[in-house]
Amino acid sequence: MSKQELLDRIEKKRAQLIDIVAKNGLTSPQAIQYSQELDLLLNSYNSDYIKNFTSQVS
């Protein structure tokens, strides 16, 4: 997956999370699921792009 595809998926999941929280509350099962999915995407971005960038700068 390209960097832009990953960023697009992160933004889409973030929007879904905001929508479901507005409808069902922060502690709803769907909100928790979407939050976990967003965490996985952000962790993937961090490990693939942020850590690589900081290691190149050092």
Rank of each mutant, 00 (worst) to 15 (best):
L40E: 15
D19G: 05
D48K: 04
K3E: 01
S35V: 10
Y49E: 00
S58P: 01
S44R: 10
K12T: 13
L41K: 06
A15I: 11
T27D: 14
S35L: 08
I32W: 10
S55P: 02
S47C: 06
F53Y: 03
R9H: 02
I18Y: 15
S44L: 13
G25M: 09
L38I: 10
N46K: 04
L26V: 15
N43M: 13
Q56L: 01
I32C: 14
L41P: 03
L17H: 07
V21H: 05
S58G: 01
L6K: 04
T27V: 07
L6D: 03
P29M: 05
S55W: 00
N52P: 03
L38C: 13
A31C: 14
Y49D: 00
V21A: 02
S28D: 13
E37N: 11
Q16P: 06
E37H: 09
S35G: 12
R9K: 10
K12H: 10
N24P: 02
K3P: 00
S44M: 10
R9A: 04
L26G: 05
L42R: 11
I10L: 12
E11R: 08
S47D: 13
Q4I: 02
A31G: 14
L41G: 05
D8A: 09
I10H: 06
Q30T: 06
A22M: 13
L17A: 11
Y34Q: 15
D8I: 07
D48L: 03
Q16T: 08
T27F: 05
N46Q: 10
Q16R: 09
L42E: 04
L26C: 03
K12R: 05
A31M: 15
N43R: 12
N52E: 01
I50D: 00
K13V: 10
K51D: 04
K3W: 01
L7I: 06
I50R: 01
N43A: 11
I18F: 04
A15F: 08
D48T: 00
K23F: 03
S47R: 15
I10C: 12
L42P: 12
S47L: 07
K3Y: 03
T27S: 13
I18D: 14
S2P: 01
D8C: 07
F53S: 00
N43P: 11
E11N: 15
K3S: 02
Y34P: 06
Q30F: 06
Y45N: 14
R14D: 11
Q36H: 12
E5D: 13
G25D: 02
I20Y: 10
K3G: 00
